[in-house]
């Protein structure tokens, strides 16, 4: 059978949509990394950068949403095309949410910028590094049409959860021992919680990537259900 693409323009538009989502992903990955660096190094320039980027992320999310709506209405996609558009819509929302958490972390950095920390920051940068790696993997899986790569992400999130639970226990112990550090410890607890939630959003992105490429739910998700 001779295969002739009769919807070349639509294919190009789908590729452009994919690029928009990846751009949003790259922006959000930088925001995540910068927000924790800003906290650890009390870097005000990075705090500002994150706060400005958050507005850009919102704009990009809206652009993706508008483009998805336009393609849904005008092209009436089916099968893999439909999955690609619905997937892009969902992924953009998840990425935007990660951007919001990055902004929240930057705000914590702003509040703590003049304080001495009662303990060195180890686990929070570690969580940020794990989450950053998960996000880059999810974006690579999306860019390379690689569902098998997306499928590796839920297990990485479990590692993030372990660090979060450990840090929560440790911070609770610090607070019991020295009520004077409670305010700062609560800020750290918030940041750790944000990073744990970021992990959950990245798992959602991985699920979307897997669904877009295969039409199925991620195997681990299926088992859990």
């Amino acid at each position: 059978m001779v295969t002739v693409s009769t919807r070349q323009t639509f294919s190009i538009e789908l590729d452009n949509l994919r690029v928009k989502v990846l751009n949003l992903g790259a922006l959000v990955a930088d925001m995540l990394s910068n927000s924790v660096t800003a906290l650890a190094q009390r870097d005000e320039a990075k705090i500002d950068a994150v706060l400005v980027s958050e507005m850009l992320a919102d704009d990009l999310d809206r652009e993706v949403e508008q483009e998805c709506m336009r393609l849904l209405v005008l092209q009436q996609p089916l099968s893999a095309d439909l999955r690609a558009i619905v997937g892009a819509l969902r992924m953009a929302t998840e990425l935007e949410r990660i951007g919001d958490y990055s902004k929240d972390i930057a705000k914590v950095a702003l509040r703590l910028r003049d304080e001495e920390f009662f303990k060195p920051l180890n686990d929070i940068p570690r969580m940020a590094s794990l989450a950053g790696e998960m996000l880059r993997t999810a974006l690579r899986a999306f860019a390379d049409h690689a569902p098998e790569l997306a499928a590796t992400i839920p297990s990485k999130d479990k590692v993030l959860d372990v660090v979060w639970h450990g840090l929560r226990t440790e911070l609770a112990a610090f607070m019991r021992k020295d009520p004077g550090i409670v305010n700062q410890a609560l800020e750290f607890l918030l940041v750790a919680r944000y990073l744990e939630r970021v992990g959950d959003h990245i798992v959602n992105i991985a699920e979307r990537v897997y669904y877009v490429e295969t039409g199925d739910a991620l195997p681990s998700v299926k088992t859990a259900a």
Binding site: V2, T3, R7, S79, A80, L82
Partner: peptide, 19 residues
């Protein structure tokens, strides 16, 4: 069939990839 066809030829047809 319309969300996840099993055969590539079905997929190509419903996505307007040939004709």
């Amino acid at each position: 069939i319309f969300e996840k066809p099993q055969d590539e030829r079905t997929d190509d047809y419903i996505r307007g990839r040939f004709g």
